[in-house]
Write a protein that binds this DNA or RNA. Structure first.
Lengths: 249, 249
DNA sequence: CGTCATGTTGAGCGTCATCAACAGGAGTGG
DNA sequence: CCACTCCTGTTGATGACGCTCAACATGACG
């Protein structure tokens, strides 16, 4: 994360998705207009904002979320280092959701205008970013299923599985056999906001997962046996394929 | 929907989204490899399929849906004439969901290879299609909120509001003052699969909506007073903006 | 005239929300 | 150093919302 190559995680990510020539990476780094540090629990962008730049997460976790009229907050996605969290703002007249930090976060900003220029120069970049959008959409679809169709325990377990798989692909998980450990910055209340459950019920559901020896949850999340947790949650990682695998044609 | 211009609804849609020169429209029509008619309740594409072409819906309704291990089906999106339902297959090594007809449907097919060629020739087409993906994602996010955070009656009402707004934008609604009427091909069971509710509870929730004089539901859905239903559902159409409005910069 | 899909109603029950109280740890200020 | 607050996690009690099972009505269709 040197100042000359701030976007390394982002570029690595895009390279996993598409054939991105090194020059495009350099060009992207050249377009960074600034880097900013955020505290815990701060909005990077807000519902209604009309953006002129994109934020790329260099370190830390953020969530997409929408706030309802009665003040409740619903988290619709979790993201970590390497993602252009508000890439979609390129096409949105105004933001339909907030992007909020879950940990202290470092973010780099890319002005829309310059990003558009780059996209025109390098069609391959457009395809890579577009694919990012598609992956995001695939994850949203699976979350719809998760929120609508699975009971509390499985719903929570499903989120755990997804994050473990996504994090491991980018080297942010510690594995030992079938056991896996990842950073877990969400409080139980926040986990409730992402699963559509009350904090109290999250607490009780976690106790069940712990009693079943499926997980340990402290500073980090330990999954004792990933395949077992996946089976419990009804988790099938196929929908994440695009994250580590290119379209064939 | 002449055979020379089968994609007119699709092109009209893209034109509302981006500045699409007429030649691109002609080029798209020239790339159609075939047109097929589907019955009610048929899969146009299936989970796991490796696609080499995209289906554009010329008439009728379809839904995106995923089938769980226990056989339950969860609908994650509703689409009607003018949409490239499986556009995302351009980037997916294999489909993560089914696309199923809710009515008899006519669909045109565009081979991926030719579509990619067109995208290279006309960057503006790439941007328009990408924007389609972004809108789809925005709708998914709102559905996540709807499924996770709203009680049955409001959840159903929210789906009604969304479809009414989307359909009206494309001239598929009949309006009289604040009252609105649209085609409604979903059975109560299907509506349950899209809202994550049992068919029985959908039935009871609809009775409440009817008793409150908010809707009438028969062959068509009649919304007696759209602003009133929107208020009841907590519906805010902002997230659909991209569908009728371009990004400013 | 039976069959099937869809809608409707009733009864009983389970999951989960709400409200309230309390424990423990971190941070703050006196 | 202690008192205080605040945040997070935990537990109990109660009740609402929505599910399941079952039965029946209606209309379309063969």
């Amino acid at each position: 994360m040197s100042s000359a190559q701030p976007l390394s995680a982002f570029i690595k990510r895009l390279t996993m998705i598409a054939d991105l020539p090194p020059e495009v990476g350099h060009a992207l780094n050249g377009v960074v207009s600034g880097i900013k540090a955020f505290d815990d629990d701060q909005d990077i962008v807000r519902q209604g904002d009309k953006l002129t730049q994109c934020a790329v997460i260099l370190g830390g976790w953020v969530c997409r979320n929408k706030v309802l009229a009665d003040g409740r907050r619903q988290v619709t996605a979790l993201h970590f280092a390497g993602v252009a969290a508000d890439l979609q703002s390129l096409f949105l007249p105004s933001m339909d959701h907030n992007i909020t930090t879950l940990t202290p976060v470092q973010a780099a900003f890319l002005p829309h205008a310059k990003l558009r220029e780059l996209i025109e120069c390098y069609p391959v970049l457009a395809m890579a970013l577009w694919q990012e959008t598609v992956l995001d959409a695939a994850i949203s679809r699976e979350w719809e299923v998760n929120l609508a169709a699975r009971p509390a325990g499985q719903r929570i377990a499903h989120v755990f599985c997804e994050m473990a798989v996504r994090l491991e692909r980018f080297g942010h998980a510690e594995r030992a056999g079938t056991s896996l450990s990842i950073e877990w910055p969400l409080s139980q209340a926040e986990l409730g906001e992402t699963t559509g459950l009350s904090a109290v019920h999250v607490n009780r559901s976690l106790q069940v997962l712990r009693a079943a020896k499926l997980i340990h949850l402290g500073e980090r999340l330990i999954i004792y046996d990933l395949p077992k947790l996946e089976a419990f949650a009804g988790f099938n990682p196929d929908y994440l394929l695009a994250e580590g695998q290119r379209a064939p044609n």
